[in-house]
Write a protein that binds this DNA or RNA. Sequence first.
DNA 1: ATTGTGTATGTTATAACATCACAAGGTCAA
DNA 2: TTGACCTTGTGATGTTATAACATACACAAT
Lengths: 161, 161
Amino acid sequence: MPSDTLGFESHDHSSCVVAALETAERQCKENKAQLTPVRRRVLEILLESHAAMGAYDVLARLDAEGLGSKPPVAYRALGFLVDQGFVHRIERLNAFIACTHPGASHDPAFMICRECGLVAEAQAANLALQQAAADSGFLLEQTVIEAEGLCPACQAKGATA
Amino acid sequence: MPSDTLGFESHDHSSCVVAALETAERQCKENKAQLTPVRRRVLEILLESHAAMGAYDVLARLDAEGLGSKPPVAYRALGFLVDQGFVHRIERLNAFIACTHPGASHDPAFMICRECGLVAEAQAANLALQQAAADSGFLLEQTVIEAEGLCPACQAKGATA
DNA sequence: ATTGTGTATGTTATAACATCACAAGGTCAA
DNA sequence: TTGACCTTGTGATGTTATAACATACACAAT
């Protein structure tokens, strides 16, 4: 059984893409949000790999396909997808990645390989942080949890520095 | 007893500044690193408040004091201070903040008030994330844990949106 | 004294990331 | 048809960060 929280394993990527798109369409219908061509294409582009992409990389793809050439086009589509929960922003990289748990409610954590750029999404609510927030009276609304390191493949390749 | 992990409480700030500077000087001596005037001044500027400051805000202060006017001056000093552990970078804000646990080894977590910008540093290692990393064979080198929400004071003031 | 080495700083330029402001088109209901 | 709302197009700008190269200073080896 493939664990979908462990993104460094090989997996059936094409079915993972299809599932994500289906979920996005269904959820947009429910939310009365529009998965327009630009938005859908941006999601597809991000789904092509499990690496994070910068907004300008996405924009370059859109431009090549005639879907838009100015930064706001990419940022708007990415913003929409993030709001809908289909895409996550990786603060550490100023980049974006398709969600690998389409539809599931989550408070995601990311493991970022500094060597190959692959990003795995995990569920890792931080209980210690929640405790600290409760203790100090802080109302916790959103959390960013991002870890950088080496994925199994890059460790095997002997990457060190 | 003041808990130094709970930064939203009032505290004796001047002694907190003095302690941080002393620790920085001692640790630089130990590490044979130089706490030069620019570096020391940047640390002092960050210590003035427990809010995060952008690199360009720091630079404006340096410029006003004749200590440097070009971005690399600020970024180099900030980079040095981060390397030494005296300052943390808040990825979420693209900003920097003085460490409130000078000298202590740590894997810091931050609580960021979206209303007033105050940032509290807490110790909140994420065990679930460490478990997830271990399970997937990911070598975890560094983690970013940042929470955004409302500090007690801003909740009391009735901030909501 | 001179030369080498290492560390820090100064400066120009540019890269990379993100948003503002305003115009224009589309859909849909009143 | 009009108006409200959402989406897109586009130019300009704002913000954050680094590359690349030059200069200065301290200190040690010769």
